[in-house]
């Protein structure tokens, strides 16, 4: 790919794909932008009219918005914290040679293959339910009052369920990274007098930095748009205690039939996602450089 001719050919051949992707992105984006400036409610068809920034003003001054913003950040941050720390520990554990290693590895990735709706429902009905759930039975066995997880700690419960789904992903990536660590480096450190903890913090953790960065970036993309787990467990409630931005936009546009308001929320969400992305790249992006 060095000559002028080959570069030109490459550009020519790649252009259909680029144009298609661009169109794919531009059309819905401009429609969203357009709708966000309209008064557009499905209950009043044919009454659309231009309203300027009204939709944005309503969306941003809605108290639910601030709550949803915090919930989104808490959800993303909480799951990231649990999965990276837990994933690192699990990867360390699974890197040790033990009997039945292969089967345990498959079992550990299993949660990743369960659909979010299904896993959230399983957690909601079989574990966290205050009457029939397993946790309630355990609590009753010890003579304790069953805890109504989804009513008392809705956001915490959702963070837990989502973490359970993403832990395998983090574990797998970190395990692969750990296995690529040169054993002689660890042996050298051992001879240099580094104990197990020092070896972890001085040798393993720096080696894992890049993999942890990848885990954080990829998970953030998906965690900003968590939806199914909220829909099937708490419906964003009680009140707005477990409503994140994605869910708020859904409520706005599909439960209140307010397409204009929902579009404005969508645009706000896009901007916020980009702020988070810039923030992340600033913070940990340098780990990705060779």
């Amino acid at each position: 790919m060095a000559t002028k001719a080959s570069r030109a050919a490459a550009r020519l051949m790649i252009s259909p794909a680029v144009l298609l992707l661009l169109g794919w992105m531009i059309v819905p984006l401009s429609m969203t932008l357009y709708f966000s400036f309209l008064r557009y409610n499905l209950l009043m068809p044919g009454m659309e009219e231009f309203t300027g920034w009204t939709n944005y003003r309503f969306f941003l001054t809605d108290p639910a918005f601030t709550a949803a913003l915090w919930n989104t950040l808490l959800l993303v941050g909480g799951v990231l914290l649990i999965t990276t720390v837990g994933g690192t520990l699990l990867a360390l554990l699974m890197d040790q040679p033990f009997w039945g290693q292969g089967i345990v590895r498959i079992l550990v990735i299993a949660p990743f293959f369960v659909m979010p709706t299904v896993s959230a429902l399983v957690w909601k009905n079989m574990f966290m339910n205050p009457v029939n759930g397993l946790f309630a039975h355990v609590a009753k066995f010890f003579g304790l009052q069953p805890y109504d997880f989804l009513a008392q700690a809705p956001l915490g419960s959702i963070i837990f369920i989502v973490s359970w789904q993403w832990l395998p992903f983090a574990t797998l990536i970190l395990l692969t990274a750990l296995q690529s660590l040169d054993q002689e480096q660890l042996e050298a450190a051992e001879m240099d007098g580094a104990g197990a903890l020092s070896r972890f913090f001085y040798i393993m953790l720096p080696h894992l930095a890049r993999a942890i960065t990848v885990v954080i970036l990829i998970q953030t993309i998906f965690l900003l748009s968590v939806f199914a787990e909220i829909l099937v467990t708490t419906n964003g409630g009680p009140g707005v205690a477990s409503t994140n931005l994605t869910y708020l936009i859904y409520m706005q546009s599909l439960l209140q039939f307010d397409v204009g308001g929902g579009s404005a929320g969508g645009v706000v969400a896009i901007i916020l996602a980009n702020i988070v992305a810039i923030f992340l790249m600033r913070m940990i992006g340098k780990n990705l450089e060779a």
Binding site: E184, Q185, E187, A188, Y202, P206, H207, A209
Partner: peptide, 11 residues
Amino acid sequence: MVFQSYALYPH
């Protein structure tokens, strides 16, 4: 010990 791969800490 000096290892064949040197085993320097790359970071």
